[in-house]
Design a binder for these strands. Structure first.
Length: 987
RNA sequence: GGGCCCAUAGCUUAGUUUGGCUGGAGCACCCGGCUGAUAACCGGGAGGUCGUCGGUUCAAAUCCGACUGGGCCCA
């Protein structure tokens, strides 16, 4: 076909590439980001990804969800604040990457290398992956401002963070303490609880039960049995805890000794029938003293005795818990209460110091075996085993963590629990259960936030301490300069390399103060993004301390991460929630529902999907499933999900374009006012769909919106278009043909607008293709248009009536099947029993015409429901429901109708041949048909109709099969044979 | 050990908030049809102990309890 219209499926890569090229050449995304039709702001902050990590499929889901909502609100005329992309630049992830590159393994080596050079490398490495993220967002159609992205390592950003820290400090919410924290001995820094949460792993640890001999008891020697999975903490043992209300037994053990343990634990350690010497409650054991497992220097008063505490359980172990106050939160609490001091034999790398000569210079994990051996040699080990359990590891470097008491700065979140809970109660969580569920629970248990890190690449804690023990928190660069009594270097880099050198005047006593040598948790950086990205309060900007963000969306893993730090910071600084709506997506799994991991080799890279399919099929796949739950995803799944709706939609557009172009008809941008019920119906369905998508997006229920679109595309293709096809080529062109064309193009354009937030590429393609009869790239982008508040009149009665017609079609088809009469053979009539429903009556004769046409019957006749007898089973197939007749069809066609059907079948085969010969629909041909007997007679009688349908002039019918040469083809239809030759006519 | 979530046909799912018509739909499968969209379209069929057990109720996929399996989080 020489002038065949160029039509592409919207799901194809090439079409999407073309849309992308159009956007970029005409600057559509930039215009969309800055365009402001209304006054209302839509507050949003992009959750900043770690600046040296590659994107994964979870990011693709999150960005799809964000993009849909952002587009919708933009089209509604709201101004997006802020459209900035963002980068989380600080912290361990970046430092570790550099350590790996340098091949260094400890802080000592970093310091030997030079902290300044090290930080320079960190800074340089942060945006190496930026281009991948940017390309992914570009391909996905996720429009953010990447040119003005906020970066947590930029001086203005950091100054805002300092401002916030000083605000907390002034309110007494930022304090130094000495508490037990999870600690990475390799990174030599404490971690926050949300970092710990990311690193649980299965490990095998020793599981040992050790005897602690009691001192000064009468009678046979007695031992407390103590169970631990961390033998390396035994040298730091200062107390043993029992529980007051638990019953303990003294049992006869080997070698004339007696053992004390919880009665519930006796069966785990002693065979049945072991003699119980005595039973007593835990509270009676208080104050007993014992010999420690290892001699350690300077035992202070009150050490090595039994104390009572409710944290002891008997679910496993012996009912006695060894207490090493420097190595556990409960231990520390008990140690403080009992005033026994602390004893920490480890250095900052987790290596034993000289105070324990036996394991001097050994790492704590290595020490386990040596210490155990020594205990065994002294016959103190009752049982030695191993246990498999989950144990926290450093989320970045994989080293097993230890819990230890350490100096650290804390944000006193525990003092704001009530406010955190209250603010969280106002958040629209998607899914809703997070509010009271996982996130809510976490809030009520909120512990103080261990903010400081003993590291290099991060926002320095802006606190200086003087020899008198006063602390001064600096809240701006000007303040720093003032306290310094000198101008700051220009440009000023507020990282450690600079500020570590600065000594300021103490704000309390004026003495020289040195900076506390910490950086802060990078999660605090990112949680400050809503204000720090605008350099609040130092520069004017759209940030409003009273206004929460309207919308954020990230993955479930942010529950303890960003969602938490945002809320804590907003609550402590501004006493308000951080966000109104928080949309949370589950994780993406492989097709077998397994986690994607490099070790399993089942990782799907986001870019590979975008490269293979383009954005919309991928977006559609995510919108079609429940994104709040774990979702399975693969190329195959995307193909299947996308093919249906996008493929069908592509077919509809292709059909429209073929006919519209053949007719050179202009597209209808204005609302048409067609008379045909079919047209009014699809317009009503269009409006219904628009309103459903509107409600779904307004409610952050994307799946509902996507389902509405799916339903409409189905109706458009499988009913409207199927029923309308002949209308598009009625000859001569009629007003009805014009109406059909106008309605279809308007419906497609309306759909494009409705679809724009969900499938931006497809929407643009339809908008351009249909609007201009060809992708002209000169029309205004659909994404710069307004969200429609009304597309067409809604007529729910008409929709109901059409549903009835379609239901009756199903009944009719079933009857044809039972009568074994193919659809191509016309039947005289369809009988419908009983009166028509009000809806159907309102539809008028058009409803019956649709029925008759679709079912290929000559007419529809109404019969009284009592007239069942008039339609005997010998002549009729009847559908009944509950004994009432519904509809009936004649069992056999009349000979005349039989003949009509036969002619129609011949015509169809010849049309097919025309098409195979590459003839255009308007091209005239000469046709010779060869047939015999009844078939020939039938064709002769219908020669005029056939000639008309086939644009054949002349059309000759001759006797017998044609000679099998020169383009002659033959067919066999229901046992009758015929042959034909079709020749293109010269013009 | 604790918390949250999920469980409907081989797959994706509607329905569960507010209990009530034979639990709908799409893909795949089987049979048939259609043919100026054609890697489409239409009809029919088969396929479901609504994870299991118990309770409430005239009535339970839906409400309650226990359990099983899976996921995530925490200890």
């Amino acid at each position: 076909m020489a002038d065949a219209p160029e039509v592409g499926a919207p799901s194809s890569r090439s079409v999407q590439d073309r849309v992308l090229a159009y956007w970029e050449r005409t600057g559509v995304p930039a215009e969309a980001l800055t365009q402001a039709r209304g006054e209302r702001l839509f507050r949003f902050t992009e959750g900043p990804p770690t600046a040296n990590g590659a994107p994964h499929l979870g990011h693709l889901v999150g960005r799809t969800l964000k993009d849909v909502e952002l587009r919708y609100h933009r089209m509604r005329g709201e101004r997006l604040v802020s459209p900035m992309a963002g980068w989380d630049c600080h912290g361990l992830p970046v430092e570790l990457e550099i350590e790996k590159r340098l091949g260094v393994k400890s802080k000592k080596e970093i310091e030997a290398y030079g902290v300044e050079r090290f930080c320079d490398l960190c800074r340089a490495s942060t945006l190496e992956v930026a281009s991948v993220w940017r390309e992914m967002s570009r391909r996905l159609g996720y429009w953010l401002d990447y040119d003005r992205a906020y970066r947590t390592m930029d001086a203005p950003y950091m100054e805002s963070v300092w401002w916030s820290l000083k605000t907390l400090f002034d309110r007494g919410l930022l304090e130094k303490g000495h508490y037990v924290l999870p600690y990475c001995p390799r990174c030599e820094t404490p971690l926050s609880s949300h970092e710990v949460a990311q690193g649980y792993r299965e490990t095998t640890d020793p599981s040992v039960t050790v005897r602690f001999p009691l001192v000064g008891s009468e009678g046979p020697p007695r031992d407390l049995l103590v169970w631990t999975t961390t033998p390396w903490t035994l040298p730091a043992n200062l107390l043993v805890a029992a529980r007051a209300d638990v019953e303990y037994s003294v049992v006869r053990a080997e070698h004339g000794r007696e053992a004390v343990l919880a009665s519930a634990a006796v069966p785990r350690y002693f065979p049945a029938g072991t003699e119980v010497v005595e039973r007593r409650l835990g509270r009676t054991l208080e104050g007993l003293t014992y010999g420690p497992p290892f001699e350690t220097p300077g035992p202070g008063p009150g050490r090595f005795r039994v104390v009572l505490d409710d944290f002891v359980t008997t679910a496993d172990g012996t009912g006695f818990v060894h207490v090493a106050p420097s190595f556990g939160p409960d231990d520390q609490r008990i140690g403080a209460r009992e005033q026994v001091g602390v004893f920490d034999p480890l250095d900052s790398r987790g290596v034993f110091t000289d105070v324990v000569p036996l394991v001097r210079g050994k790492s704590f994990k290595v020490a386990d075996a040596i210490l155990l051996q020594d205990l065994a040699a002294r016959d103190l080990v009752v049982r030695s085993d191993t246990v498999r359990h989950t144990y926290p590891h450093c989320w970045r470097c994989g080293t097993p963590l230890l819990y230890r008491a350490i100096d650290s700065w804390f944000v006193r979140t525990s003092r704001a629990t009530e406010r955190l809970v209250r603010h969280n109660a106002t958040v629209h969580w998607v899914p809703a259960h997070l509010r009271e569920g996982r996130f809510g629970n976490f809030l009520t248990e909120a512990k103080d936030w261990a903010l400081s890190r003993n590291r290099y690449w991060g926002t320095p804690l802006p606190i200086w301490g003087c020899p008198q023990g006063h602390f001064t928190c600096v809240g701006s660069f000007d303040e720093l300069s003032e306290r310094l009594g000198a101008p700051l270097p220009d440009p000023f880099d507020p990282h450690r390399v600079t500020v570590d050198r600065l000594e300021i005047a103490c704000g309390t006593c004026g003495a020289r103060a040195r900076r506390e040598p910490y950086t802060i948790d990078a999660w605090y950086d990112s949680g400050s993004a809503p204000f720090a990205q605008f350099h609040y309060p130092f520069e004017p900007g759209p940030f409003d301390p009273a206004a929460p963000l309207d919308f954020i969306a990230e993955g479930l893993d942010q529950t303890r991460g960003w969602f938490y730090s945002l809320l804590v910071i907003a609550t402590l600084l501004f006493d308000r929630p951080a966000y109104r709506t928080c949309e949370v997506n589950g994780m993406v799994l492989d097709p077998e529902a397994r986690k994607m991991s490099k070790s399993k080799g089942n990782v799907v890279e986001p870019m590979s999907l975008l490269e293979r399919f383009g954005a919309d099929p991928v977006r559609w796949a995510f919108l079609a499933v429940d994104f709040t739950e774990p979702m399975r995803m693969s190329e195959g799944i995307i193909q299947k999900t996308a093919a249906r709706t996008l493929g069908t939609l592509g077919n509809v557009v292709a059909f429209h374009q073929e006919n519209a172009r053949a007719d050179r008809l202009p597209a209808a941008f204005d609302e048409p006012h067609p008379t045909a019920a079919l047209d009014r119906w699809i317009l009503s369905r269009l409006e219904a769909t628009r309103s459903l998508v509107d409600a779904g997006l307004d409610d952050a229920d994307l799946r509902r919106a996507a389902a509405a679109v799916r339903g409409f595309v189905d109706d458009l293709s499988t009913w409207y278009l199927r029923r309308s096809r002949p209308r598009f080529w009625s000859e001569p062109p009629s007003p009805d043909r014009t109406d059909a064309h106008a309605t279809l193009s308007y419906a497609l354009l309306g759909l494009a607008t409705t679809l724009a937030p969900l499938l931006p590429f497809t929407a643009e393609w339809i908008h351009q293709e249909v609007g201009e009869l060809g992708f002209r790239e000169r029309d205004r982008s659909v994404h710069l248009g307004a969200w429609p508040t009304r597309l067409a009149p809604r007529d729910e009665d008409l929709e109901r009536a059409m549903d009835e017609v379609r239901a009756l079609v199903e009944v009719g088809r079933e009857l044809r099947q039972r009568a074994e009469v193919k659809s191509r053979i016309p039947l005289a009539e369809l009988v419908l029993f009983g009166p028509a429903s009000p809806a159907l009556t309102a539809l008028g004769p058009e409803g019956e015409a649709l029925l008759a046409d679709e079912l290929n019957v000559k007419r529809v006749r109404r019969a009284a429901a009592s007239d069942r007898a008039g339609h005997a089973d010998a002549q009729w197939v009847v559908r009944e429901e509950g004994g009432t007749p519904i509809a009936a069809l004649p069992r056999t066609p009349t000979p005349e109708l039989q003949e009509e059907g036969l002619a129609r079948e011949v015509g169809r085969r010849l049309q097919q041949t025309r098409k195979e010969l590459g003839l255009r629909y308007s091209e005239r041909v000469a046709v010779t048909v060869g047939a015999t007997g009844a078939l020939r007679a039938a064709l002769e009688r219908r020669r005029a109709d056939l000639a008309h349908d086939l644009l054949a002039d002349p059309l000759e019918v001759v006797e017998g099969p044609l000679a099998g040469e020169g383009g002659v083809r033959s067919w066999d239809v229901d046992g009758l044979t015929f042959s034909a030759r079709i020749v293109r006519r010269e013009r």
